[in-house]
Amino acid sequence: MQSTLTATQLQQVLLLIEEAHNAPNAQALRQCVVYGVGAMVESSSCAWTELKSDLFTTTTATATVVDISDKDVDVNESIQLFNRYASQHPVIARAVHSGNANAQSISDFLTRSEFQNLELYQYLYKHLHTEDQLSVGFVENGYVTGLSVNRATWGFTENERSLLNHVARCVFPFYRILQKDNHSETENRPMVETYMGIITEQYQVLGITPREGDVLALIARGKSNKQIALAFNISEGTVKKHVENLFRRMEVNNRVSLTIKAMTMIQIGRHL
């Protein structure tokens, strides 16, 4: 995926990922991401939603989780309305039928008048001040999990799509870990530590050596060359050489871009 993010945005994304990966449980991760994305993208609110993916064969959906950044919203009422009209949502429909996980907006599929004519809009989104919505998600084990940015205006930029894609591709795999390991030690381990182990195991996916994988794992943890040298009992010069090799192999020129690209390439969820 070609990044259109600025250096500042990449840094913001990495900080959000760090915070999310250290969340103690799934709810804390969801709330962290919802509020973090809302601070980075112009929006009326952001939401994390989960619902059964068989909604297109039934009259209503069943949303099991809804976290929204707008504290004035009646969440229970919103869940009921969303359950009733979710089958009209074009982005959800596309995700269920095609498995497309990239960020897409309602305006990619409908005209503004078509959207406003939907009951989904008239009974729910209109009252949430949502004239368009950008969503990214995944379908797994009969459920659709989605992260959405709601906006009071029409349309989203490619930059905003890229930002949401970066966040989702780095956060969703760790959310899967929390869901799958509810009663294991993994739940209480910082998520970035779990990521470090996965980098070390999946270094071949990135086309790097095992030692470069070790170095990259600590770079993802925010460690300096000196700290990495102490961790592996090697010289700072050797660490510097590993970092230069990583930049060259991954075709990046800074540590933030290196971490984001590695996370994206590995697509951790496919290996769990």
Results as ranks from 00 to 15, higher is better:
residue 50 E to F: 09
residue 58 T to M: 09
residue 67 D to R: 04
residue 51 L to D: 07
residue 20 A to P: 00
residue 83 N to E: 06
residue 11 Q to T: 15
residue 68 I to W: 11
residue 37 V to C: 11
residue 61 A to H: 01
residue 50 E to L: 11
residue 57 T to R: 07
residue 23 A to N: 01
residue 41 V to P: 05
residue 34 V to M: 03
residue 88 Q to L: 05
residue 85 Y to D: 01
residue 66 V to N: 09
residue 67 D to E: 12
residue 84 R to M: 08
residue 86 A to K: 00
residue 41 V to C: 12
residue 73 V to L: 00
residue 36 G to W: 02
residue 52 K to L: 06
residue 41 V to M: 12
residue 75 V to F: 06
residue 84 R to C: 06
residue 81 L to T: 02
residue 62 T to A: 08
residue 67 D to P: 01
residue 54 D to N: 09
residue 50 E to G: 07
residue 59 T to S: 09
residue 20 A to M: 04
residue 53 S to K: 01
residue 48 W to V: 14
residue 38 G to V: 03
residue 25 N to M: 00
residue 19 E to S: 11
residue 28 A to I: 04
residue 72 D to H: 09
residue 60 T to P: 08
residue 40 M to D: 08
residue 65 V to G: 09
residue 79 I to F: 06
residue 12 Q to W: 15
residue 38 G to K: 04
residue 44 S to W: 05
residue 27 Q to R: 08
residue 33 V to D: 02
residue 50 E to A: 11
residue 81 L to D: 03
residue 37 V to R: 00
residue 30 R to T: 13
residue 40 M to L: 14
residue 86 A to S: 10
residue 14 L to F: 13
residue 71 K to W: 00
residue 83 N to Q: 08
residue 59 T to F: 08
residue 75 V to C: 07
residue 15 L to Q: 15
residue 15 L to I: 15
residue 63 A to C: 14
residue 62 T to W: 03
residue 67 D to F: 04
residue 18 E to R: 15
residue 16 L to M: 13
residue 69 S to M: 06
residue 14 L to K: 11
residue 32 C to T: 12
residue 57 T to Q: 10
residue 18 E to M: 14
residue 66 V to A: 11
residue 53 S to N: 10
residue 36 G to L: 02
residue 84 R to D: 04
residue 39 A to M: 12
residue 19 E to H: 10
residue 72 D to N: 11
residue 32 C to N: 01
residue 51 L to M: 13
residue 60 T to H: 14
residue 85 Y to G: 02
residue 64 T to G: 14
residue 73 V to S: 02
residue 77 E to P: 03
residue 27 Q to V: 04
residue 53 S to L: 08
residue 49 T to S: 15
residue 61 A to S: 05
residue 87 S to M: 09
residue 61 A to K: 01
residue 38 G to C: 08
residue 30 R to W: 15
residue 89 H to D: 12
residue 60 T to G: 10
residue 13 V to R: 02
residue 55 L to P: 01
residue 37 V to S: 04
residue 29 L to H: 03
residue 45 S to A: 15
residue 82 F to G: 03
residue 57 T to V: 13
residue 34 V to I: 09
residue 52 K to V: 05
residue 43 S to L: 05
residue 17 I to K: 04
residue 65 V to T: 14
residue 26 A to S: 12
residue 50 E to I: 12
residue 40 M to W: 09
residue 33 V to A: 06
residue 88 Q to A: 05
residue 37 V to M: 10
residue 77 E to I: 04
residue 23 A to S: 01
residue 82 F to H: 09
residue 70 D to H: 00
residue 72 D to I: 02
